[in-house]
Structures are given as C-alpha cells and as structure tokens.
Design a protein around this nucleic acid. Structure first.
Lengths: 246, 246
DNA sequence: CGCCACAAATGGTATTGACCACCTTGGGCG
DNA sequence: CGCCCAAGGTGGTCAATACCATTTGTGGCG
C-alpha cells in the first residue's frame, strides 16, 4: 500500500464523517497529521477531486462536493447500470444460435469467416419492463457451452469473468438516433417508427482483442442519456447513462 | 503563462511531429532540455495523458497515443466539439428576439415570468454544412445588447466570458432520440421524420445560477456520439458518498 | 546459436523547502 | 456603525533530490 493510497483512504474516511459543503483539513495540516509530504497529500486529493468527491477552492480550502449523478457510473454493463439507480435488471433470451461468422461478422469481430460465433438476441428489462432489445455477437471459442438460461441470470460481463476467465478491459461505443422497425416495436411495445437509441459496442480484453460486438436498441420514451457538465474544463471524464424515472 | 503550460505546449508540438506509437523524450530529458524540473514535466504530461494524447509505459517510455476521436464530445461547446472532430465550426443566426420569460421559460430559467429573456434560433454548421438547429434562452440582463452577428463569430461561451464576464462552470445535459419536424427538416436539409438527437442543456455559473437553457436538434445521419469505455474498470471504485449521512 | 542474467533507462512515488495568487477575516479607521 | 484593507491561511506552482519497480536491450555463458 503506497502512502498516497493510504492518504486517499484516510481522507475518504474523513469525507464520510463530514457533510456536503464542509471543508476537510488543509493540505498542510493533513501532511502533518498523516506524516506524509504535502505533495503526497496533493496527489491523493487530486485523485479524489477527479473522482468528484472533493472540490478545491483556491485561497479558501477543499470541500466535500455534492454527489454527482454521473459519477461512478460505467457504460459497460446494463445490469450494473440499472442496479445503480435502484431498478431491477433482467434479461430474456429470445434466440441463441451458433453460426459461422461470415464476411461481415468476421470483419467486425476480427475472426475468420468460418469461425463459429454465438449470436444471441435478448430483451433487457428494468423493473420487469422492456427497456431495450439487444443482439450479442461473440466468438464461440470464448464461451463454449453458453446457454440461453445463463444469459438471463445476471451480468454477461460477470459471467465472462467468473466462468470463462475473460475480463473486459475496454471498448468503443457509438450511439445514434434511429426509429424502431417492426420487430423492435413489437419487442419494446412501442408504436412503429418510434424514436430510439441505437448503441453499438465493441468490447476488448486486456490484450486488445475484440471480445464481443453488441447492438442494442433502447426505447426513446423511457431511456435518455444524462451528462453532467460540471468542471467542463478540467474534468474530461465520465459520461453516464441514466434511465428516466417513470 | 506558467512553466507547466509552456511545457505542455512544447510537448504538444513534439507530438504533432511524431507519429502514433512513437515515444517522446523521457521525463528527465525533457526536464533538462526545457529547463524545468521533472515534477513540472510530469504535471504537464499528466494533463496530456488525461486528455488522451499520450500513454505512459512504466520502464519503457511515454508514447503518442492514437487520437481518440471524441470521448468528451458532449462536455464542451459545439465549437470545441467540432474542432475536436477536425471540422470548422460555424453559426448562422436565424432569429433573435427579446421577450418576457412567461411561465414555462421563467420556471426553466428560475426567473420571474416578467423578466426579459433573449431567445435566439440559429444553425450550427460544420464545414459549412448544417449539423444542428438550436434555440438558445438566456436572461437578457446577463447579455445586454447581444446581437445576431456576435452569435455567429465564435463560441458563445467565449463571448459570455470575454464580453460579459460570465463563466459557465457546470451544467446538466440530457440527450434523447427524436425525429425531425417540418421546421427542423427544412433547416437541416433532411427528410421529414428523420432520426435526430435532441439535446437539452442547462448551464450554470460558479454561483450555481442558471445561465442558459439550450435545445439543440442534431441530424442523426451526420452526428454520432462516441464513447471510449477504456478505463472503466479503474473508475469502478467503492462509493462512500452514497452511504454518507447528510 | 540460444538462453539468461544483469545493467541501464524509464516512469512511479516520495521528501523538503520555497514562493505565488487568491480568499477570508478581523481590526482599525472614518 | 459600516467600510476598507492588511494579515494570515489556503490551494497552485516549482525546484532539486532520492529511491523504487518495471521494462528492455545487451553481453556473456552454456
């Protein structure tokens, strides 16, 4: 455990005992109290400021900040995303098949066109209501024996990690507006040609290899993206997805 | 100009002359070459790493990273957003009027219904092509004498800061999918009922007062949101703020 | 020829000391 | 009583130095 990490934890303890808007001890005081140099304190505070726990005010002090809606949220998992806002996530597998990748999928997943690929179509539910319809593409060799039932149990990423030892380390996601087609309208329970988000995500493991390609259509009447613009200059970090309350 | 900012600019120059994947000089070399301490170099590099220009490899060096197209695209102004995408931003004011806020606008802007409000409708251009149509609402007392021409010159936020001394410090933005109506289709040059993004943004100054309310409709065929999910694992921290008593 | 250990170089962490720019506050003056 | 300004405290920046952990290339040994 580095001193910086220890300092971070100590300050986090302090933060928990304080209310929003109260000030933490000055950097010099923390330095003396914790027996570390001021620069180490600053490095730890830098981290906490980046994460949104604290705000600095030059000449004044460092204060506990209001919890930000957008902080701590990751875009990676629908399951986590829903849980964080108190909704119960669910999943219903509509179809699961193993097929040769073919030209298009092979190119997208960076595998040979003859390689076996699992293609699964499923509904994503929040509080038993359909929030999105999703098509998942993943190399069959990564998830041998994957069943439709397993896909409904919990987070796919947790499954990947715990059962198959595949850790999702990063990815790229694009979002565009679209309108629902017949299949999507029926699945989501919305009128034909309703506005919707189309999410396309490529996930990579630590080695940079593509793990999955996912296309999701989110109903536009119940799902919206909320971004917190606080600290627009310095904070080049999180964007978060937030489901609109019903 | 602080030494750190100078160092940052120098390194940025170096980056432009190098290709992706090439290494910049070591921190110690930069320190010697630029005549600043290694700490200052590190602070500057920290910033560039945060912004995605560089990646560090312990024991190996610091390298130019692949350009991340738009990972914080919605966090800044349209002007900055387009520049980051390598396009030339522009603006054309369609209409600008000063009207009483009324009930709805007064509530949104947190002002009296009788207060004068500037309502401006303008096209946002990228490389001379229409990218979005936007309606801006701002208290008239904040921007006395604002003209249509000024709105076309550059970033509205730069104008607010430089001419009116109003610094936008934060805000909340929501994004939802929609389809274009007649006016939007005509303005954007797309068919009626084309998919589009509807952005709604509330900006606040440092005091937390609402500065502006903006509604923007972005054409969905040319504008996509791209998010980089790398690092989402690291950001997955225990959240003490939720449990904290208020 | 191939493997391995070691040395050099790199970024990561940490200390001490100093000065600056800014904000807050309290005391003094009108 | 109220205003103003100076002093002290705060975060922001910078220097010089030291040691650690990791990576990598190279030279020597088998």
């Amino acid at each position: 455990m580095t001193k910086q990490a220890e300092t971070r934890d100590r300050v986090l303890d302090l933060i928990e005992q304080l209310g929003v808007g109260e000030s933490i001890p000055s950097e010099r005081q923390l330095s003396a109290n914790l027996g570390v140099s001021r620069l180490t304190v600053r490095a730890a505070l830098d981290e906490l400021v980046r994460e949104g726990y604290l705000v600095r005010r030059r000449g004044s002090g460092t204060f506990v900040s209001e919890p930000k809606i957008a902080q701590e949220l990751t875009l990676t998992s629908f399951t986590d995303d829903m849980r964080r806002r108190g909704m119960t996530p669910g999943s219903r597998t509509l179809d699961l098949k193993v097929v040769p990748a073919g030209a298009r999928l092979g190119r997208l997943l960076h595998v040979s066109p003859s390689e076996a690929v699992v293609v699964a179509k499923r509904l994503r539910l929040a509080d038993r209501e359909t929030m999105a319809i999703e098509t998942l593409h993943v190399r069959e060799s990564l998830v041998p024996g994957l069943t439709a039932a397993e896909l409904e149990e919990g987070s796919f990423y947790a499954l990947l990690r715990d059962r198959y030892g595949v850790v999702v380390a990063g990815g790229i996601q694009t979002i565009e507006p679209t309108v629902t087609n017949e299949e999507e309208s029926a699945a989501l329970g919305v009128p034909l040609h309703s506005p919707a988000f189309l999410f396309e995500r490529f996930s990579r493991n630590e080695a940079g290899e593509i793990v999955e390609f996912v296309q999701s259509t989110y109903r536009g009447d119940r799902y919206r993206i909320v971004t917190d613009l606080s600290g627009s200059v310095e904070m080049h970090r999180p964007q978060a997805l937030v489901a609109r309350g019903s």
